[in-house]
Every structure is written in structure tokens, then in C-alpha cells.
Design a protein around this nucleic acid. Sequence first.
DNA 1: TAGGCGTGGAG
DNA 2: TCTCCAAGCCT
Length: 360
Amino acid sequence: MIPGDLEVIDFNRRLKSWYLENHRPLPWRETKDPYKIWLSEVILQQTRVAQGLPYYERFTEQYPTVFDLAAADEREVLRLWQGLGYYSRARNMHFTARQVVNDYQGKFPETSEKLLKLKGLGQYTAAAIASFAFDEAVPAIDGNVYRVMARIFGIQSDMLSNEGKKEFWAVGKEVISKEDPATYNQAMIEFGALQCVPSSPNCTVCIFKDRCFAYAHQMQGQLPVKIKKLTVKHRFLNYFIIKQGDRLAMYERRARDIWKGLYDFHLIESQTPSTTPDSLTIPDLVFQNLLKKGRLTEIPKLYSHILTHQRLQVRFWWLEIPESERIDLPHGMAFYNHEEVEGLPKPILIDTVLREENYL
DNA sequence: TAGGCGTGGAG
DNA sequence: TCTCCAAGCCT
């Protein structure tokens, strides 16, 4: 199934001509600036173009150069990232911007091997930047490309296993155009995104239908092979929004857990869905004290929030403290006024609740 | 190395 | 309501 030299030339010619006619005009394709290409690649990791595009516009506007990004506070970067998910991408991106400024005089390394050393850049992203910005002939194999390669070339090894990845990589190195690797990589990705789509691809109009393994064997639904075992954990979260005047008590999530670096409220996790605060175990003496001093109001709506590997059932209470009370907050918490709360990076769930409660 | 890490859209 | 998944990476 792996094409010979002549087939590779024919494959590349067809692929490139398809790309030139069909590709979407996306802003990061209009530049050779490695900084902007890097931004776009990090934003687009596990993210659809439609979702990432507005973030790319905002980031390039707010931080036109790597120096601007390096000079920003991490909190500010996370706030701009809010809603995109996988927040470690933003933290790593900020870290790497500072490294590029401090260790590389603001210039990105120009080979995939060196790019790979930077935090937040894996095999795919390093190859993408190296080929798009510096025309290095390395295959950039993302989910789209795995799918295209598995189907056309009939590669049946598990794309999520290390062995499988090696095989795709080896074939990719054979097939990539040495004359124009940048366009080859863009074209493979775009072909997967527009033509060779995951479900129900329209193969009758495909330029490769005469030489596609999956089409010949009607295995579009079976390829690529992905063996994944995902266990979804159920969690029950109980949030107390401590409010005094217009100020809310929030704290930064620092543990190795979801939403690291983002801000939320006083949280009590329970093993079962809770109905009343009385049924919760409240070990925190400071918070027990607060409960006595404040007025507790339940937000009746039960929120469910779905992450890749967790299903959250979340209940919220307002805990309003009279302005006259002088109080201590649980450890690590601080009060933020309305404007500050708006400016803090928050999980989308927290932002949604504050909007529905007409606070934001 | 396998499991953790968000959010939103589509079927 | 459920499943899949979308330009993956880190530990």
C-alpha cells in the first residue's frame, strides 16, 4: 500500500492541486512569521478552526510579537484564553514565549528537532512550525492526517499507540513532498478537514477514490484504528459564592486537577449529589464560622458540566455576609470586586453561573 | 506509559 | 441523552 516513487509524485501533484483549489483562506496561512504560526498551532491543538479563530485574532491583536506575550502576566494570558479549554496550553505557551525571548533573543529555533524541546510543542506542532515557517521536510501528522493516511494507504495499526505513530511517521517521511513540504502538510490537514472527514465522507467526488484502500474495501468507518480506553469519573461539586457588598471571595486553583491556574469559589466536593449544606461534611472551621454569619441562598438549578474524562454535577449557593461583619476567609481566598472578578480567568462554568445570576 | 487535561458542535 | 471528536501534550 505504501506508494513507490512515481506514485508519490502523482499523489503530491493531485494533493497540491486539490489544495490550491479548495483550501480555506485562514489568517495563519498568510504569514511565515513563526510566532504567529506557533500561536495558531497551539490554539488549534484539539480545537476546531471555528472555535479557535476568534482567539487567534484576539491573541495576535493583543500580543503582536513574542515580546508582547512574554511581557504579559500569566493571569492575563489565561483570561484571554478563557473558554478555549486545556488551559495548560496557555500556561506553557506563556512560559515558552519567555524562554524564546530570554534564551533565543526572541527568535524561534528553526528546526523541528530544536522546536521539540520547547514546552507545549510535541512532535506534531514542532513539525508544523518547522515546515510552515522554515520549509523543513518533516511530516506534520495530526488527527486529520492520521485519518487520510490510514484510509488511502491502508495503515491499520493503532494511531494512538507508540508503534502505530512510528509507522505513520515512517510512511509520512516517504510521501511528503521534498519540493514543497509546507504546502504538503497544509494540504494533508485540509484534505482531512474538508474531504476525508471522520464520518460519512463523500467518496464519490474524492480525487483519490481510484487509489484509496478504505474506499476499495469500504472501510472508511473502520479507519483510522484508534484504541482508546476512556473512563469517565463522576464528581459532585458544591460551590459557595461568598459575597460581601459587590465583592466575591475567590481563589486560584493550584492543585493537579482540572482548571489549574483558573479561579473559582469555595468548593466542597461530595461523594453523592448533595441536597442541603447540612448534609455536607465541612471540615473548614473558618468556613463554618462564615456560614453562621452569612445568609445562605441556594441556586435551585443543578448544573452539569462535561469534560472529556469527568462529568460534573454542580450546585451553587450564595453566602452573603453583611457589610458590617469583619470576617476571615478560608485559606488562600481573597475578595475581588466586580471589575476584578470580571478580569480573572475562570472556568466557563463559573462564568456562566455568574452571568445567569446577573452578577457579570 | 497510560491517564489526565476543556469546551462545543455534530450526528 | 449519548457518542465521537477537533491542527496534542505533559507527566
